[in-house]
Nucleic acid binder design. Sequence first.
DNA 1: CTTTCCTGTGAAATCCTTTTCATTAAGCTG
DNA 2: CAGCTTAATGAAAAGGATTTCACAGGAAAG
Lengths: 331, 331
Amino acid sequence: MSVTIKDVAKAANVSVATVSRVLNKHSNVSEEAYERVTKVMEQLGYSPNHLGRDLRKSETKRILAITASAEQSFYSEVLRGMEEAAFAQGYDVLFAATRDDPKHEMHLLNMLFSHSVDGAVLLGAKQDAATISKLAENHNIALCLERMEGCNVLTVTIDNVKAGKDAVSYLIGKGHRRIGLISTETRSQSSVDREKGYRLALEEHGIPYDEELVYLGSYETESGTTGCKYLLGLDDPPTAIFAISDMIAIGAMNYAISKGVNIGKDVIFFGFDNIAYSHIFVPHLSTVEQPCYAQGKLVIEKLIENMKSGIPDKSIYMLPHSLVLRESTGD
Amino acid sequence: MSVTIKDVAKAANVSVATVSRVLNKHSNVSEEAYERVTKVMEQLGYSPNHLGRDLRKSETKRILAITASAEQSFYSEVLRGMEEAAFAQGYDVLFAATRDDPKHEMHLLNMLFSHSVDGAVLLGAKQDAATISKLAENHNIALCLERMEGCNVLTVTIDNVKAGKDAVSYLIGKGHRRIGLISTETRSQSSVDREKGYRLALEEHGIPYDEELVYLGSYETESGTTGCKYLLGLDDPPTAIFAISDMIAIGAMNYAISKGVNIGKDVIFFGFDNIAYSHIFVPHLSTVEQPCYAQGKLVIEKLIENMKSGIPDKSIYMLPHSLVLRESTGD
DNA sequence: CTTTCCTGTGAAATCCTTTTCATTAAGCTG
DNA sequence: CAGCTTAATGAAAAGGATTTCACAGGAAAG
């Protein structure tokens, strides 16, 4: 149906080899032939069939990024980092969503096994560590944003333990001793790590861990609201609240506002992620900022490095985070 | 390097044709051969190379969805609709971002020309109508969310003119006669259409159009803030404000709040998109809801229909929108 | 003037499947 | 039992590119 390299060759009166050489900017092709071929390609509206090329070269120059859903707003910066780093090296990044379904994640990973893409980056994997480790033995795989305990695979993330600890230490530094934690029932590594940070901070300052001050819900804003209602309803309520995500923190603040709490004075709040809304929502939210763009960029750079070298680097890279202080902590 | 169909054939002591038949669940293969082949495939850990298959069949069963950036939060529902509709028919949807660059959009569209995907959906195209029309002649292309004036291509969207008109008519119905409009300088079709709706509503109620009441900015929240500051600073300020997006409306309300305006009474606000934050932000925002999931689903269904039939349907499908009334309009 | 070395080129192999076509063997019909 | 159909299979072509290898012809070197 469509124009092939053969048609071009015939029309330009050269062999397909020569057309291919023109296509790939090889050196050994005469000025004259080059002109003739490019002109014919133009005339016929020739567009090379990548499938042929990919099959022959066993390489697609494409990387798949797998996310749970497209929803998480801070993904967008990560994806931009990936996209730009890839493009700089002649790769394209394609995104696909697992719909939170491990089976569908495996279906998408199949694009890797079937040579439809050269590599894959998982932003929050749904398979278990053993499965991922095994896949990483034979395929170019990387994790981003979420590390996996005991998984031997290239990973780019932040130090969520330290980040959680930093946030809570800041609250303690402001003189607070009863600090609430709103986290998730889902045991994602980042939640677990941030909780661990919370505990370490308390420990370091000689504050006993009180299970009563910990609320586990979902990632939804509403869960933050419920959590805050629970915490502020305690006999001895906290004067500071750390939420493991901004969405949750905003939900929590919403409840506090509705109860007439003076945020930043009566109770202070700390979130995580520095999403756009954290400085749109009033009062502006203090939060942990993670280098989204940089993580996306680095994971692609390292992955491509792996694909080229053949000696895969399976290190865990932890990029630095920072605290962003705003009204919700009275700053 | 990896296991091919040949290796399987040899190990199972059959021809590659038979292996292929097993792979594709053809009928004419004996029980015994079937068993033997599947067992060998298992043992060798065989995974068919899709590139070979795709090349032979000239079909990838993959559709590319092109967005400006991954940022727009309401994209996620559209993408989910696309994903699920595609999966139901054995297709995968991959997403890629143009970074707002027309050149990069064309680069991505090249995946279509080079047979790397079977079809493409543009969520807000950056090329001009003539270019898209021409591409649509030879390729399976569709537009979603944003229609293009004078473009002969399959399109799934909502009636933005009517939606804008409905929103503004509602404001008028509440007794308001000075109605501000915050839109974008970018002349995207949806902005243009919503503005047109604004004008039609005024006209229909005999309210003269006053250019002073129209502020054009960007899609950013901050632009809403600036716009609101401008509008409320007028000698004869509006008592109702229609913003062409929720993000802008929230920015606008933020300014109003900071000035002590009683939202829902002194000034009422109407947004567009019904993003998650429109009912998290206090006061909750009245807005136009568009059927995101349904649009994504329909565009994929129609596109696949086109791919199969060969007689492309290039209609414009407009799905119904609805008004969501909340505190910002005093409801 | 012969030998060697480039340069430019084309024929053919290759990548991995699917699919067509031919062939064999077995089962059925009359 | 001859003649037909059907089921199961394999050999080989096809799909569209890249790449290897061989070769021709001209230039440079001796």
